[in-house]
């Protein structure tokens, strides 16, 4: 397999564990990615992000300073074209869901192999989403929770197809297997998965805005 990328993808690695940071940096560099910055905590990450302008931020969730979830939100606010790939050791469910709601488009546990990591960075850079079965289960649960909420909430629900695809991801099937079983193209399966994340992020924004209005935080500029 040709591991070199045509146009070198600019990556930033944020991890407070030096051994991990170095290992990930080395693997990425060896595979032809350009590691433009590393950071050991949230403060460093936010300080270095504007100058380094990475396309992909490989982010550990449990970091000192502003948490991984906050870093995700702030980084994407500065540069909506950037992509965030969460690489977490413990995969604490609330944090993972929080990061995905804040706009992260990929999630991987640290026990993933080197190839899985490189593939994930490549796919996230290309605009794809990288799901684990665990994350798919969380997202399904979140949509069900939203569905049971107040009926007047202007939220996007998943279509039947999207739920079906997400369930299959949660059952450990690859996009390729799902495409075969549902007789869909690989691209269509990917679009369905992407849509679920997009809706989740939209709903999160709607909820945040509602919350802000209810608490009178929208009067700031008056």
């Amino acid at each position: 397999m040709d591991e070199r990328v045509d146009e070198r993808v600019r990556v930033m690695v944020v991890d407070d564990h030096p051994m991990w940071r170095d290992a990930v940096e080395r693997d990425l560099a060896a595979a032809g990615f350009e590691v433009v910055a590393v950071a050991a905590d949230g403060h460093q990450a936010l300080a270095r992000f504007p100058a380094a302008r990475p396309q992909v931020v490989v982010l550990d969730l449990q970091i000192p300073g502003p948490s991984g979830v906050e870093v995700t939100a702030q980084v994407l606010q500065q540069d909506p074209a950037a992509r965030v790939l969460i690489l977490s050791a413990s995969g604490e469910q609330a944090d993972v869901l929080g990061a995905v709601k804040a706009g992260a488009t990929g999630y991987l546990v640290k026990s993933a192999s080197r190839e899985e990591l490189l593939d994930a960075v490549r796919r996230v850079a290309a605009g794809d989403t990288v799901f684990t079965p665990g994350l798919a289960g969380l997202v399904l649960g979140e949509f069900r929770r939203i569905a049971e909420g107040p009926a007047d909430d202007p939220v996007d629900q998943l279509t039947e197809r999207e739920t079906e695809v997400l369930k299959m991801v949660a059952k450990g099937m690859s996009y390729k297997q799902i495409a075969e079983r549902l007789v869909l193209s690989h691209r269509t399966v990917q679009n369905h998965v992407q849509n679920t994340l997009r809706k989740l992020q939209m709903n999160n924004r709607v909820q945040l805005t509602r919350w802000a209005i209810e608490h009178g935080l929208d009067d700031d500029d008056e």
Partner: peptide, 18 residues
């Protein structure tokens, strides 16, 4: 415990990979 677990998980993952 969260801090301890995270550290242990990091090392275990790293050992697994390397």
């Amino acid at each position: 415990a969260r801090a301890v677990h995270d550290g242990v998980l990091q090392v275990l993952s790293l050992m697994q990979r390397r």
